[in-house]
Amino acid sequence: MNNVNDIITQELRAFASSLLESGEVSAFLGFAHGSLPMTTRPFVAKTPEDAQKLVWNSFCVLNLANYLPALLKSIEPPRGPKDPPPEGPLPKAGVIATGCWSRNIVVQTQENQVDRSRLVIAGVSSRGMVDRKKVLKALDGKEITKIEEKDHDLIVEADGAIKELNRWSVTRDNCQSCVHSSAVVFDHWIGPKLDDRQAPNRFKQIEDIEKMTADERWAWFSKEIETCIRCYACRNACPLCYCETCFVDDSNPQWVGKSIEKADAAIFHLLRAFHCAGRCTDCGACESACPMGIRMRLLTKKLEKDVFELFGDEAGMDASKPLTMTTYKLEDPQGFIFEPKHGQKKE
């Protein structure tokens, strides 16, 4: 019997190839196989033949929304910087989207980074993507030479030995705490549609850290970022990061130093996370892209929790609502405001 991923892959190829065939889209964005076990490559299919290279499996960890602004631009007819946009509708692109990716597309629409009318979204329900680092850990760091995916298990071959792992046990933290696994906007549905997951401990990871003392939290945070090499994979894998000049590249004034020293790494991670406040959909691409295994997602998850609890917002769920940080309510909570005890030092 075919497993879910195979069904989705077949449907996806058929759909993408029909769109490309008919000319409705000039590119279709998905994933292709990588050269190593547990890797995939974001891939742009431009012909129906290309579309046969598309795959769907548990290792599609990057967020495809990240590529959309540049992809849409690249398929526009070439024109000079001062030329007016061509008449008539611009070419479209197709993309496959899970819950979080589709929410990022919504955010991009709200921020005028992509034009929804130029996208054909193939919605899909994510069953949770696998964390490569968890699999490695489950195999004591042995080199994994082959991996076969079943619906609920992974058959891993490492250094000659074969081990069966429960798939869900090695899915990413963000997937395990996800509550919107199915695309929220789409034009076509691919594969079985799952109900929204009721993650019992959506913010448990965050609550555990919040329980610590300030010193313990600082120790945790320092340890977490100590191996940061400042490669900016987290930033560049993020669909929210599209600024022409990033704050880390500003030189006058320079907000953050460029070295891997503690202060610089700490400021970088805190500011990067803060820029995602009210926009992050917890897609986990930052963490998956990190070559050093830093869990910087915990910072954005904390913001996601606060945005949800303080302002009742979830990013990317409703394109008609303004983004959290671009609006306000008169009755917004202000318990954090410093209130002096009156008249302590009066002369």
Binding site: R41, F43, Y67, Y232
Partner: peptide, 10 residues
Amino acid sequence: QSCINCGACT
């Protein structure tokens, strides 16, 4: 096309 232009490789 797929490169995200990070510096992990370098």
